[in-house]
């Protein structure tokens, strides 16, 4: 049995090209241009035309907080769901494997917006759950399936020999999974999970359809009263862009540290 070199096992991250690495010393990276451009545009609009731009910016901060709350709540819950699903998908137990696989297939087959609507209003018929928690649950159920696939791929990227070696040392399968496979898999899956995090933050704008007062909802409320649709969506887009650029930068830094630790 051949044990392959583990250092080559990475999953490419889609946003990677935009994030400067240490080797990328140029001043005008894609990330810098987008970030400075977005901040500059926002500052210019707010200073040059405080009415309506500053008014819009003053109207939305509590929406940004709600967007963060929904995103972080959903990411934690979906990680948990994803871990269970990922383990279920590689499990030899037919029952768990079946449940996890059906869950992934069903969720991936339904548009996110439809799922959010469905889970929110279906949940309301069965149990009494506050609106923000329902929105978080809806997002987490949707993203749990995708997280599960990321985690499954991460676990499967660890060479079989690792498991075999652990078993031959007398570990049980559970011990081997917990002490040998998962710690290695986490390094592999962290970057794509970071990517899912950004995708989730953007998709969290869909919960505005559930009357959750997130960033997009606040913007729409402002526009509906002032009729300043173009101006409002300009600000909303810039705010989302700045938040996701900061996040992608953080994820880039995290990736670098993981690679440095290897």
């Amino acid at each position: 049995m051949m044990i392959t070199d583990n250092d080559n096992k990475t999953i490419e991250v889609g946003d990677g090209a935009a994030i400067p690495t240490k080797a990328d010393a140029g001043l005008f990276t894609a990330w810098r241009i987008s970030f400075l451009g977005a901040v500059g545009a926002l500052a210019y609009l707010v200073i040059a035309k405080p009415d309506p731009y500053l008014n819009i910016l003053k109207f939305v901060p509590d929406g940004i907080v709600v967007t963060f709350k929904v995103t972080i709540g959903a990411i934690l819950l979906s990680l948990l769901l994803g871990l269970l699903t990922g383990l279920g998908r590689i499990s030899g137990n037919r029952f768990f494997n079946g449940i996890a696989s059906v869950y992934v297939e069903v969720i991936r087959g339904i548009p996110l917006l439809v799922q959010i609507f469905y889970i929110y209003y279906a949940l309301g018929r069965v149990v009494h759950v506050p609106d923000m928690l329902s929105a978080i649950i809806a997002m987490a159920v949707c993203y749990g399936a995708y997280m599960g696939e990321v985690i499954r791929a991460g676990i499967q990227s660890i060479p079989k020999g690792q498991m075999e070696a652990a078993l031959s040392l007398g570990m049980t399968r559970t011990q081997a999974m917990g002490h040998v496979i998962l710690p290695q898999a986490i390094k592999v899956v962290l970057p794509p999970i970071g990517n899912e995090f950004i995708a989730l933050l953007k998709d969290s704008s869909l919960v505005s359809i559930l009357a959750v007062s997130d960033l997009l909802r606040r913007g729409r409320e402002y526009a509906s009263e002032s009729f300043a649709y173009f101006e409002t969506y300009t600000i909303i887009a810039l705010v989302y862009l700045i938040i996701t650029l900061i996040l992608s930068k953080l994820i880039g830094l995290m990736e670098e540290r993981i690679n440095a630790n290897r």
């Binding site: 209003y121 949940l123 309301g124 018929r125 009494h128 506050p130 609106d131 329902s134 359809i209 009357a211 007062s213 909802r217 729409r220 409320e221 509906s224």
Partner: peptide, 17 residues
Amino acid sequence: KTYDEVGLAFEDMAAGR
């Protein structure tokens, strides 16, 4: 709380939210 359609608001009230 603002809804896209008024029917959704009534449905949310039926759910007790």
